[in-house]
Design a binder for these strands. Structure first.
Lengths: 302, 302
DNA sequence: CCCGTTCTCTGACTATTGTCAGAGGATGGA
DNA sequence: TCCATCCTCTGACAATAGTCAGAGAACGGG
């Protein structure tokens, strides 16, 4: 399988690398062309460009100077924070970007052209599959402070989804608590999944002194549904629980969350009688953890 | 579909580009690392490296100097042609290459790791499909002089395959001629298909003054079977024939060449009575060309 | 054995890419 | 109001990447 991946890498980089040549044909350094491309139609903060393209701040500054000298961009201070600067394409810059866009289209069309209809369909279908699964494998899971903006975003989205899906809505105040302190080690744990630095899912543990722990706050963004992220989050929670000395995991859930219920059953959780009085719960689950299943975890996918 | 291809390009380059970083971690410029990698286990001619990596001759020379200074390669003159120089990895160079190899493996493994078994299988299958179809779309078809080495290679392979597959072998001298002059414009035409500058297929036309032409020398290398190359070669021959004023194409073939027979039938050729006395032929085909089907051809796939 | 060609190497460049330290304005909280 | 921090820009570099012309050895056909 590794060989398959590596052969794929070789073939694809070669073919896709042609895009660089197409960009270079415009007589501009590749770095500048990519920057122009990345700015896009709307004004963009320099710091976001820097992190996206991984550029040194001095380097970016000078490249923008060059683009500005060519009349392709303007740079002005942000309205609300004078330290932040924003870059925007001029009409000439937009035209240039449209030209780069056209070239990228041409390249894609040239790849499809020699193939017949059936081959084109198979190719684009396979590309979609690769793209999707590569994205799935790029999702990173890390422990996070519940007060971190990414964590906050996930928890807000989680509550919003419950409110939308439960009959009669959802009021966090009526539900059993899982406050910030309860999700902070060693009382508990919050995992946040990110894709390209965007939060796309979370899951939490609330540890009890008797060697039991509760799974809480399991949420997966609709943008990554089908990536198997729920399964990964749960597995990661379990291995971290084992590492923390937990022998039994428990959780409760609402009947509206059908895919979650399926996930828990598939992961070996068994239905048990209600072990708490959570008003929003319809199902209670429990799983005895294998203490030898140490934390194989999710290493940095590179 | 074009959008699909472009989104694929974006996702994949990002993920696969990580290989460069892994290579750079060895403290060597990327160009040198790639060169080291490309040399491989056996001695390699400099000119082949140059064309493969698209390098300037001076640039290559200097990079090899640097690698030689590090004790990773040796360069010596070719035994038979003193102008040609060959580079070979030293034991230290082989070790370094093995390390790069290991890093590439790690990267591939890191891509697979976060996925479950089912996802891994789907990913590698889709990668295989993409790789295969991208290769198919990379095959280039051009008119060639029958005396060109690539053309010679194809014709030799064609005869060898006939000799192998026909009951009782094949002797070109007994067959109806299609000499070099007969396959040179305006008497005729030879198309050669290449993949990464390697000849992988051919097809020819022999024009007759009555507006008829014969299809000859249709051959596709086993390495690219299933790429739809036969179909492409035939279509290209047809459009060039139309451009040359031909209204009817004819061809004869042997019953052993079942896939060719299927190709002709699928392309609209109909069985006709024998129109010549080719001793190796079992089937004779004919197709009336649509004079409005001008040469849409195969543009440079980039 | 001559001569045009092929192949590589060297010298002499230029351009791009990238890094680092520090200046200086703007912000937000103590 | 002060100070640490954030963000960007400038200066000063350094290394990599890439180009071009021409020298010089080796070859191959007439």
């Amino acid at each position: 399988m590794v060989d398959r991946v590596r052969r794929f890498n070789r073939v694809v980089t070669q073919r896709v690398g042609a895009l660089d040549d197409a960009f270079l044909d415009r007589g501009r350094p590749l770095g500048q062309a990519r920057l122009l491309w990345e700015i896009g139609a709307d004004a963009r903060e320099l710091r976001s460009l820097r992190s996206r393209l991984g550029l040194d701040s001095g380097y970016l500054s000078r490249m923008l100077q060059a683009l500005r000298a060519d009349g392709l961009v303007t740079v002005e201070a942000d309205a609300t924070d004078g330290r932040v600067r924003r870059v925007r394409l001029t009409p000439a810059g937009l035209a240039e970007r449209a030209e780069l866009d056209r070239r990228a289209d041409d390249l894609a069309a040239a790849i499809l052209h020699p193939l017949d209809d059936h081959q084109r369909e198979r190719l684009t279908a396979a590309m979609g599959e690769v793209e999707r699964l590569l994205a799935a494998s790029t999702v990173q899971i890390d422990a996070a402070d519940p007060r971190h903006p990414d964590a906050r975003h996930c928890l807000r989205a989680y509550f919003a989804e419950l409110a939308r899906r439960f009959d009669g809505g959802f009021d966090p105040a009526r539900s059993i608590s899982a406050a910030d302190e309860e999700l902070t080690w060693p009382a508990g744990l919050l995992l946040v999944a990110t894709l390209h630095a965007e939060p796309v899912g979370c899951g939490a543990l609330k540890l009890h002194p008797d060697g039991r722990a509760e799974v809480k706050r399991m949420w997966v963004s609709p943008t990554v549904r089908g990536f198997g992220l729920g399964r990964r989050l749960l597995a990661e929670l379990e291995s971290r629980a084992v590492a923390g000395g937990v022998h039994t995991l428990r959780l409760e859930t609402n009947r509206a969350l059908t895919e979650a219920i399926g996930l828990y059953r598939a992961a070996g959780y068994r239905d048990v009688p209600a072990f708490n009085d959570e008003p929003y719960a319809d199902h209670w689950f429990e799983k005895t953890l294998d203490p030898t299943a140490a934390r194989a975890g999710t290493p940095d996918p590179g």
